[in-house]
Design a protein around this nucleic acid. Structure first.
Lengths: 343, 343
DNA sequence: GTGAAAGCGCTAACAA
DNA sequence: TTGTTAGCGCTTTCAC
């Protein structure tokens, strides 16, 4: 007795052929109801399961979407993937996740694996490290649909969903100004990534729009990490003319800043205001709770997947215009910046 | 020009046959070095990628391990998956993740999908809801290797990696006693899951071993949720004879307890001590930082995968004895319970 | 050392 | 309405 039942097995039992069985199982209109019933019944009895590998080989479609994220530990990405999965499952796709660990090499290997596995599409949020894009070009070359989310690149002509980082940073900075802070610093992120550059620009724009002068000294070249936040605070406190608030490029950075400030005995928000970016889940649980900018994660996942679906459906057809979807950032003001209380 | 290059294409260009090309690419000993060189060169030139779908169909192996977890939002599972992935990748496997969202139906669907996709093995941490096990029996029936991690079930005769929940609970409770708390409560979890039952038992055992009487009134039937923690505290404070510390079944529950205590103006740890279980990442960032029991997540993932690997390798052979691997819980004492300071 | 051919399980075009 | 057959891309047994 063979362990895996095939349509041929069913056919033999029923004195018919695998063609008929296949059609019956796929509810083909030309098959009589009678036969369909007999086939499905026998299939159930024999414990038949359609071999999706064979289907994939035959059809050239795997029903798998490959997703590459920097790290599942960062809540933000987990949440976006959640959105992707929900939409994907609804549309009959499965999702395969690869973590790049912020490394170009892993990212590259992920792409390779996905292409070999003939996934129906690839979705990527770029690693911090990545500044060589040849693996993405390889994807385009195979005509495999590809979509960026959050961490995208403009030069590559690849569809993307991002949020309006400039606006988010603007809103964050403006909020600090409205709360009465007068010397506002910024802890920035790696500048080769669009999103972090945009946040720096948004910060500058908000200052200017509110009649404040941009001061290079008040920008600390940081990173997405707790440690960067701590180092930034140490630096700020070493200045002659200390800032009284900071917009951190990301929540983990903001967390580091808060920890350092608390250790230095500086009160938040009365002595120093902090706002982050990303709305990581820990933000509402820490003390003081962290002000931040929400990035509509689940929504981002959904939007990214619908771009993907569109690409899959129009594959092959003329489809030259790149789509960029830009989501609105949503400010979330909590205790770390509410000097005056709620606005 | 066809988009996907096959070994046949390479063969044609080289005036040889696909058999030879296949052997050359797989470094078959019977192929001359000369030919191997020509083949690999041409493969590279044509941008050939091996079609893993075809390989899978041929070999009956997909190189995919399906993992089912309740939720990726719970850090604990993300971390275990991390461990699984690391080991899996090292051994040439890819990992496909399915979230059950704690629902039996999704879990069931995940199993179904994995079986149809002919994954080489399935790893599961059961959904809270699950108390019907027929989908797991179906897996056993197909002889697909299956391993449980953390949330396992004893009756099913399935390999599993768990931690010693009884001991973890014992250590947590004992710690509270050693810190000088005298009326120690427990916020429990759903009792149909082994792990939560074991934690309740460990709590009882620690009380008894230290000459304290177990008191049913001091056990609140809770859940893995912030809300359950809040409700538990409200209940405890409503008692005539209030407890002065609590061991919560899980960190999120402990978090809820802390929030409620703070809102009620009760000092932690001097007025009330709290310890959780899981070592979720937020624990070290909140105020007060949360005492907890670490579950060796990454290690658990690795151990679970090596059980899996063993099953795959001995598949078919006589292999009747079920393996249970039990990891040691590691106490992590922080401010939420250190009334006396560090021990 | 290499070629020829069968077959993994399925679907679909063509025939009947 | 159903049967027949070819083929998706690869590996492997059997020849030579």
């Amino acid at each position: 007795m063979s362990l895996t039942v095939t349509i041929a097995d069913i056919a033999k039992k029923l004195n018919t052929t695998s063609g008929t069985v296949s059609r019956a199982l796929n509810n083909h209109p030309a098959i009589s109801l009678e036969t369909k019933k007999r086939v499905t019944k026998m299939a159930q009895k024999l414990n038949y399961r359609r071999n999706t590998v064979a289907c994939s080989l035959r059809s050239g479609q795997t029903g798998i979407i490959g997703v590459i994220i920097p790290s599942a530990e960062i809540n933000f990405f987990g949440s976006v993937v959640h959105g992707i999965e929900r939409m994907a499952n609804q549309n009959g796709y499965n999702v395969l996740i690869f973590q790049s660990n912020e490394s170009w090499m892993h990212e590259q290997k992920g792409i390779e694996t996905f292409l070999n596995a003939r996934v129906d599409g690839i979705m990527v949020s770029m690693a911090k490290e990545t500044n060589d894009y040849k693996h993405f070009l390889a994807v385009k070359h195979t005509k495999t649909p590809i979509v960026f989310f959050d961490r995208a690149n403009d030069e590559l002509e690849i569809d993307a969903v991002i949020i309006d980082d400039h606006k988010g940073a603007y809103l964050a900075t403006e909020h600090l100004i409205q709360q009465g802070y007068t010397r506002i610093a910024h802890i920035s992120g790696p500048q080769h990534l669009n999103i972090f550059r945009a946040r720096l620009e948004g910060y500058k724009a908000a200052l200017t729009a509110n009649g404040m002068r941009f001061n290079k000294k008040l920008v600390f070249a940081g990173d997405v990490s707790i440690d960067a936040g701590r180092r930034a605070i140490k630096y700020f406190l070493s200045l002659e003319n200390q800032p009284d608030a900071a917009f951190a490029v990301e929540d983990f950075t903001a967390l580091g800043a808060i920890k350092e400030l608390k250790e230095q005995g500086i009160n938040i928000p009365s002595g120093f205001g902090i706002i982050g970016f990303a709305n990581e889940s820990f933000g509402e649980h820490i003390t003081p709770s962290l002000s931040t900018i929400d990035q509509q994660t689940v929504n981002m996942g959904k939007e990214a997947f619908s771009l993907m679906l569109h690409l899959i459906e129009t594959k092959g057809r003329i489809n030259k215009n790149i789509q960029k979807k830009i989501l609105e950032p949503i400010p979330v003001f909590r205790n770390s910046s509410l000097k005056k209380g709620n606005i």
